[in-house]
Design a protein around this nucleic acid. Structure first.
Length: 269
DNA sequence: ATGGGATGCATAT
DNA sequence: TATGCCTCCCATC
């Protein structure tokens, strides 16, 4: 379930599990066999994330660059690694633990310069302390593109995906169809601040929860919901269900090749 | 058994 | 704007 919060968690978990020790690196599937061989047995020195990009730094200077794409994922386990199940692109292991990577859109080795180039094409990441939200504001405030599309554009903002996009716009009552340049500075500041808060909570929880305490099913006197993506949200994947705040049916449409969800009443143009 | 969908992105037009 | 790609899982037949 890869938006930026998951990638930051993965950086921390990889570092905790493998950091400072030699790591056996392999590619049971074979597709990353050449790269795995180059770093096999080296110490894992660092791990970091920017947006949805994960970087593991090895002792001789190579960077393992992973992007999960739509459905890639890591599985961690304790103890000796079992025989691989399914299509495992990358396996990291030591005597105490292992991690399997399946289905990534990117799994490659980069030089430091190549890694820098990846960072250079990404906008500020709300989860990074060194992020400069002004860089995003400059692009948004000059763009005729919808705010819905801009929030998903990793050159504008790194780490926000379809769930955070839908939810932050709902929480601030902003119609997803407004042009970026029609946002006020105050609205942008609020969007950024909310993303910083929500995404940090997401890193801690490992899931996306955006519903304020006063709107939880319990507080509203509704039966509790079980959401199939794992968190409590206002509009994401709630098409044709009543808005948790006003009761209007949540709407959905395909927007720039992604499913967009919003409440037409709470988020007026 | 099958097929569609998915929290993403690159490329082509 | 449309298409392809990576892989798994679930609903449906």
């Amino acid at each position: 379930m890869p938006e930026g919060h998951i990638i930051h968690r993965l950086a921390a978990e990889n570092l905790k599990t493998f950091g400072g020790r030699p790591v056996r690196v392999s590619s049971p599937q074979g597709r990353f066999a050449d790269g795995a061989k180059l770093i096999d047995g080296q110490l894992l020195a660092t791990a970091e994330a920017t947006g949805k990009h994960l970087f593991l730094g090895f002792e001789e200077g190579a960077w393992l660059h992973v992007h999960l794409g739509l459905y890639g994922g890591f599985t961690f386990g304790e103890g000796r690694a079992p025989a691989p199940v399914g299509v495992v692109r990358l396996r990291l292991e030591n005597d105490d633990a292992y991690a399997d990577l399946r289905g990534p859109t990117t799994c490659e080795l980069l030089t430091a310069a190549e890694k820098t180039a990846v960072h250079a094409r990404l906008g500020p990441d709300p989860l990074r302390a060194d992020a400069d939200p002004d860089l995003a504001w400059r692009r948004i405030s000059a763009s005729r593109t919808t705010v819905a599309a801009l929030l998903m554009d990793q050159k504008v903002l790194a780490g926000v995906g379809n769930v955070y996009r839908a939810e932050v716009l709902f929480r601030l009552g902003i119609s997803p169809h407004r042009a970026g340049r029609d946002l006020t500075r105050a609205e942008w500041d609020a969007v950024w601040a909310d993303l910083v808060g929500l995404m940090h909570e997401g890193v801690g929880a490992g899931r996306i929860d955006t519903v304020r305490p006063e709107h939880t099913p319990e507080a509203m006197g509704r039966p509790p919901r079980v959401d199939d993506h794992g968190g409590e949200v206002y509009v994401y994947r709630r098409a044709a269900m009543p808005c948790l705040v006003c009761g209007t049916d949540v709407r959905t449409e395909e927007h720039a090749a992604r499913n967009l969800f919003w409440c037409p009443s709470c988020q007026q143009a």
